[in-house]
Simulated scan of single mutants.
Amino acid sequence: MSFEEFIGQYGLIVLLVVLLVFMFWSSRRRMQKQKAEQEQRARQTVPGAEVLLQGGLYGTIVEYDADNLDQPALVEIAPGVEIKVHSQAILRVVGPNPADDEIAEAADDATDADADDKPNNV
């Protein structure tokens, strides 16, 4: 059996198998990317973070339970005005993250402590 005969008889099947493998690989890669984005969003979504909601409203998270996404989040959209929204209504974190500020403060404190421990050569 020559190559031309093989392609003539089985070419379509080979093409379909290659296409199915590509579709499976592409789908799996996209799902992994979406999962990583969701995990990053969950880490950033903490009380005090400024967020953009699906409806175009900006607000500050007051209460959010990352473990129970069926529990509504409490978002302050104006001073003294808090609304309950579904956790999936939070589109993205847009403002400074208080957790990042705490990490930066801890790093600054550690740097200051190291500077205090060093002797002065005056």
Rank of each mutant, 00 (worst) to 15 (best):
E5M: 12
F6P: 05
I7P: 05
Y10L: 00
G11H: 11
L12K: 15
L15F: 14
V18F: 08
L19E: 04
L19V: 02
F22E: 08
W25H: 13
W25G: 05
S27V: 09
R28G: 03
R30L: 15
R30G: 10
K35D: 15
K35S: 13
Q38G: 09
E39R: 11
Q40N: 09
Q40S: 12
A42I: 13
A42W: 04
Q44H: 12
T45N: 01
V46M: 04
A49C: 03
A49V: 01
G56I: 05
L57I: 01
Y58Q: 10
G59E: 00
G59L: 02
T60F: 04
V62N: 00
D67Y: 08
N68A: 07
N68C: 06
Q71L: 15
Q71D: 07
P72Y: 14
V75Q: 04
V75S: 02
K84Y: 10
A89G: 04
I90R: 02
L91P: 02
L91H: 11
L91W: 06
V94D: 07
V94S: 05
G95F: 00
P96Y: 11
P96T: 07
N97D: 13
P98F: 06
D100V: 06
I103E: 11
A104L: 12
A104I: 00
A113G: 08
D116P: 01
D117T: 12
D117A: 13
V122F: 09
